[in-house]
Amino acid sequence: MSRPLCPRCQRPLTHCLCALIPDIDSRTRVLILQHPSETTHALNTARLAALGLRNAQLCVGEVFDDLAQWLEQPGYRPCLLFPGDEAQVLTVPAKTDTPLLLVVPDGTWRKARKLLHLNPILAALPRVRLSAVGASRYRLRKAPEAGALSTIEAIVEALQVLEAPSTFEALLRPFDALIEGQIAAMGEETFLRNHGHRQA
């Protein structure tokens, strides 16, 4: 028998995170394209990011028929947050620059690349990437490479650059609580056995 879920954060009611989710405005618009396989994942950080940002939209799918329409937001310049040789490092914009519509694919690297393959408009967008980033706080997943972040962490890092000196750290409060809750549920001994060696 499944446990009742909070309709907003989709967590079990006994572990609802809504009280920790902030309500933050941003000049940057964030469009999160989530692969369907991520929606039922216990650590669904993209949903937390979308709930905490007023100027964010979360769309789930593999092929997005309305993508061209979503990208044509008046007053925004669309770009894709995705690493690669052609990706420009995000820098603090000039106050006169057009705000970005930051498109963020959400899924494993393989699933994210599949989204780009299935949506040529997405693959054609100018790409941006983060500069050097610290270690991920996502202690329950093995990062495929150094500097790999969860979706919510990548969004926070990007907004910290684009909207400095504003801070978006509050977005990570429910994320941290989610991680701590998962560790508590599995037990400290199990966590250390399976994940402890990944700690710095």
Rank of each mutant, 00 (worst) to 15 (best):
L31S: 06
I32N: 03
Q34W: 02
Q34K: 11
P36S: 12
T39L: 13
T39R: 10
T40V: 13
T40N: 15
H41F: 09
A42D: 15
L43W: 10
R47S: 09
L48K: 02
A49M: 03
A50G: 13
A50W: 11
L51P: 08
L51W: 07
L53G: 04
R54G: 07
R54I: 05
R54T: 01
R54V: 04
A56N: 09
A56Q: 07
Q57S: 05
Q57L: 11
C59L: 15
C59I: 14
G61P: 05
E62C: 07
E62F: 02
E62W: 00
F64C: 00
D65H: 14
D66K: 07
D66T: 06
D66G: 00
L67Q: 00
A68C: 05
A68Y: 05
Q69A: 14
L71S: 03
L71I: 03
E72L: 09
E72R: 14
P74D: 03
P74R: 05
P74Q: 07
P74H: 06
G75D: 06
G75S: 13
G75H: 12
R77N: 03
P78W: 01
C79W: 10
C79H: 04
L80D: 01
L81Y: 04
L81K: 04
L81H: 08
F82T: 01
P83N: 05
G84D: 11
G84H: 11
E86V: 13
E86I: 09
A87I: 10
Q88Y: 02
Q88C: 00
Q88S: 05
